[in-house]
Amino acid sequence: MSVRSARAEALTPLHPSATLVGAGGFKRVAKHSVVPNTDGNAVIHGDNLDVLKAIASDFHQQVRCIYIDPPYNNGENFLHYDDKQAHSKWMEHIRLRLPLLRDLLTADGSLWISIDDREVHYMRLMAEEVFGRDNFVTTIVWNHRKSRENRKVFSNNHEYILCIARDIKAFKKARNLLPASNEMLARYNNHDDDPRGPWQSVSANVQDGHATASQFYSITGPTGKVFNPPRGRCWVYNKAKMNEQIALGNIYFGKKGDGSPRIKKFLSVAKMGMAPQSLWTADEVGTTETAKRHVLSVTCGLDVFDTPKPEQLVDRIIHIATDPGDLVLDAYLGSGTTGAVAIKTGRRFIGIEAGDHAVTHCCSRLRQACGGERGGVSEAVGWTGGGGFEFFRAV
């Protein structure tokens, strides 16, 4: 069953006058769209355990990325939820949901979990129990605040995001690089006016630990100067291929032709991008405080969550883990950040939220996202509005 047909069966009424949707038992309450086809985006108001069970069959292995911001169990009481449970109850809560989340993921899909110091190690262990230890990808450290908290023993200025793959080999092949930085692009130039365009040079020799005899030889440069690989190293190509690359103009011997040979790598054929690092700074992906200001601006002054996630943070996750058109799920939708980013970046989404803020905050924010609001990642991704979503209540 395709993603689109599964979505249609699970989230679209069978008839315009129908109130129950598919076997999942959802009542469609409202529909908001800027264009006629909402592409199945949905906010579901209900307990996420019940909802995940209800959609398990129709969305089995259909979701490319799941991001969750579950209770941290940090012992605090917040305006919109209580984050104070017995450790054993918190663990049971998470354990019941992880297998359901795993089974929704595509083979190259991934689960991303926001968490802090109090339960991060238990969360990782529980995730590894379900996904397998070999499928744990990394722990990301997010610099979630810039200010200092002097009332505590330590000012905790970071949280964590755990990344776990359904199948780490498939995820490694499919995950996206981050855009190339200006510093990386500046390495490309065109000293010799090569008609193939800007290029950078890289070493033509490598460590000789696995070398063959064919990789040890002398190279004569344009000025007649002879080059041999440094001690402990060999040429990256055998002699025949090196001569071929020299003839093609792919080996650079310096401006005067008497420099050690280097390989020309052209910008036009380079796979540009950077592997994501495990440290995400506030300047790169925002802070809790910047997220609060943005959420306040798109929820008409309603009381906002104490710990919302910035769109830039979720955008980076979605960029790494998905491509446009892929399905994203957030089982703890909160203030609607994941849905807003999905809409703005051309992904499809399902958001699940149990609290009343599914209506007051999520829907209000997502309507504004569809209308082209300019906060968060809108400017960076060129968002001007469009799309839509439907709101369902579990029954």
Rank of each mutant, 00 (worst) to 15 (best):
A174M: 10
N176F: 00
E92R: 14
A107K: 15
T287Q: 07
A342R: 00
E284V: 05
K27H: 12
K309D: 09
I140P: 00
G22C: 06
G336W: 01
L302K: 15
L96T: 05
K344T: 06
A354L: 12
I44R: 04
N41G: 08
V130G: 10
E92T: 14
Y72S: 08
V21D: 09
L329K: 02
T12D: 08
A165Y: 01
R7A: 11
R393L: 08
P195D: 10
R118A: 14
L162M: 05
A211H: 03
V381L: 01
H144C: 10
N189G: 13
R187Y: 00
R133M: 11
K344C: 02
K225G: 03
C65Y: 02
K256V: 08
N238F: 04
H210V: 12
A275Q: 11
F305E: 13
A282T: 06
D50H: 07
S201E: 05
I113S: 10
G209Y: 14
E353C: 03
A275P: 00
Y81L: 03
V381K: 00
E129A: 13
V202E: 09
Q277S: 15
F349K: 08
L14N: 13
C163W: 03
E379C: 04
A247E: 11
I161K: 00
R97T: 11
M242V: 03
T287N: 04
N182Q: 13
S33P: 01
S378N: 07
I161G: 04
T299Y: 03
K292L: 01
V377H: 05
I113Y: 08
P222N: 09
T138A: 13
M242C: 04
T307W: 01
A342K: 07
G254D: 11
V3R: 12
R64E: 13
D50V: 11
S155Y: 06
A18G: 01
R102G: 04
Q61G: 11
V63P: 03
A291Q: 05
P308W: 08
A275N: 11
I94M: 15
L296Q: 14
A10R: 02
L125N: 12
L313A: 07
A270Q: 12
D167H: 13
D50L: 10
R102D: 03
I343F: 00
V381D: 01
R133E: 15
G351D: 07
P276W: 08
S114R: 09
N143T: 06
A107Q: 13
A204S: 13
S278Q: 13
M184W: 03
K309N: 07
V359Y: 09
A23E: 12
K172C: 01
A282V: 06
A127F: 02
G386F: 11
I317W: 02
D283N: 13
L313M: 11
V298R: 08
C300E: 14
F389D: 06
G209L: 12
S33Y: 11
A211Y: 07
L178F: 02
G351P: 04
P222Y: 10
P310R: 03
F171C: 06
L177M: 08
L101K: 07
L366T: 09
L248A: 15
S278N: 13
Q85M: 15
L178Y: 05
I350T: 04
A204G: 06
G334A: 10
R393D: 03
D108F: 07
W112L: 06
H45N: 04
G385M: 00
N135D: 04
S5G: 00
I168D: 07
Q200N: 05
K169E: 15
M1D: 08
L366G: 03
